[in-house]
C-alpha cells in the first residue's frame, strides 16, 4: 500500500528513532558489562577501549548467579507445567462439558488475569510462613502456579472452542473418555496454543520480582531477578559487574523471544477483537 500522506522518508526516520531508542539502553548494558570499573568511570557512554569478560567471570564464579539462574529455571518450568495442565483441563471442561458455575469460572479467570499481585502478597506471605515455605522455592512455585492459571484458562478456552465439535463427538462415539479425548484428540491440535501459553507464562515467571523478593529472602534461595536487586545494593561502585548479571538475566528472554516471536504476539493479542 503506497500512500503519500506522510512521505516515506520522515516515516523511516520516526521508526529509526524509535528503534534506536528501544535498543540503545540494551546496547549500553552490554557495552558497560564488558568494561572494567575503572574504564566505566572514565568512559561511561562510549565504546570500550579494551573489552574484558572479567565481570562475567566474576559474576559466574564468585557470585551465586548460576544458582539463582537455576532457581529461576526450576520455578519457571514447574509453575508453567502445573498451570498449563490445570488450565487446559478447566478450559476443556468449560468448552465441552456441562457444570454449574461455568460462566462465573470463565469470567473469574478473565478478571483474575489483571488482579495486581501486590494486593495478594501480604496475606500470602503469612500463609507461606505458616506453611514453613519461606526461603523455599516451593513457595514461589506454588503461588506462581496459581497466578498463571487464569490466563491459561482464558487463552486455551479461546482455542478449544474453535476445535470442531464433530472431532470430539467422533472420539466419544469411538468410546474415548474425556481425559483420553483431551489428550489424544484436542491437545495435538492445540499445540500452537499450548506453546503460546507456555511462552507467555514462562516469561512472566522468569521476570517476576515482587513475590520472589518477599518470599525468598535468603541469599542462595533467590531467583535471578531477586538476586539481581541484591547485587544492585551491594556493588554500587561496580556498575559493570551488576550490568553483566543484568545482561545474563535478559539474554535468555531475548533469545527465547527471537525463537518464539510469533507465538508471543499471538498470545498477547488474543481476544482483543478489532
Amino acid at each position: 500500500m503506497k500512500i503519500s500522506g506522510l512521505a516515506s522518508i520522515p516515516r523511516h526516520v520516526l521508526l529509526a528513532i524509535l528503534t534506536v531508542a528501544s535498543l540503545a539502553p540494551l546496547i549500553f548494558m552490554v557495552l558497560t558489562s564488558v568494561k572494567s570499573p575503572d574504564e566505566y568511570e572514565q568512559n561511561p557512554a562510549g565504546l570500550p577501549h579494551t573489552v574484558t569478560f572479567s565481570n562475567y567471570v566474576h559474576a559466574l564464579v564468585d557470585l551465586p548467579t548460576l544458582t539463582w539462574a537455576l532457581n529461576s529455571l526450576l520455578v519457571t518450568v514447574i509453575s508453567v507445567a502445573i498451570s498449563t495442565v490445570a488450565g487446559a483441563m478447566a478450559a476443556y471442561a468449560i468448552s465441552f462439558g456441562t457444570f454449574r458455575g461455568r460462566t462465573p469460572l470463565l469470567m473469574g479467570s478473565i478478571a483474575a488475569i489483571m488482579v495486581p499481585p501486590v494486593v495478594l502478597v501480604v496475606p500470602m506471605f503469612v500463609t507461606m510462613v505458616n506453611l514453613k515455605l519461606i526461603n523455599n522455592l516451593g513457595s514461589v512455585i506454588l503461588f506462581y502456579s496459581c497466578l498463571l492459571i487464569p490466563f491459561s484458562i482464558f487463552f486455551l478456552y479461546n482455542f478449544f472452542r474453535t476445535v470442531p465439535s464433530e472431532l470430539v463427538e467422533a472420539a466419544v462415539v469411538d468410546g474415548a473418555g474425556p481425559l483420553r479425548t483431551l489428550w489424544s484428540v484436542v491437545m495435538p491440535l492445540a499445540k500452537p496454543a499450548l506453546v503460546t501459553v507456555g511462552v507467555v507464562n514462562a516469561i512472566w515467571a522468569w521476570n517476576e520480582l515482587l513475590i520472589a523478593l518477599v518470599f525468598l529472602q535468603d541469599e542462595r534461595s533467590r531467583t535471578l531477578m531477586a538476586g539481581l536487586t541484591l547485587l544492585q545494593g551491594r556493588y554500587v561502585t561496580n556498575q559493570p559487574l551488576v550490568l553483566a548479571v543484568a545482561t545474563l538475566s535478559i539474554l535468555p528472554v531475548a533469545a527465547f523471544y527471537l525463537l518464539s516471536q510469533r507465538a508471543f504476539v499471538r498470545g498477547l493479542t488474543a481476544g482483543i477483537g478489532k
Binding site: 483441563m89 506454588l142 473418555g177
Partner: peptide, 20 residues
C-alpha cells in the same frame, strides 16, 4: 468429569486469589 476437570484450577485460584 467436568467437575473433576475444574478442581485443580478452582483450588489453585481459590488459594491464590480468593483467599488472599
Amino acid at each position: 468429569w467436568s467437575y473433576l476437570f475444574v478442581v485443580p484450577a478452582v483450588l489453585g485460584m481459590g488459594f491464590g486469589f480468593v483467599f488472599p
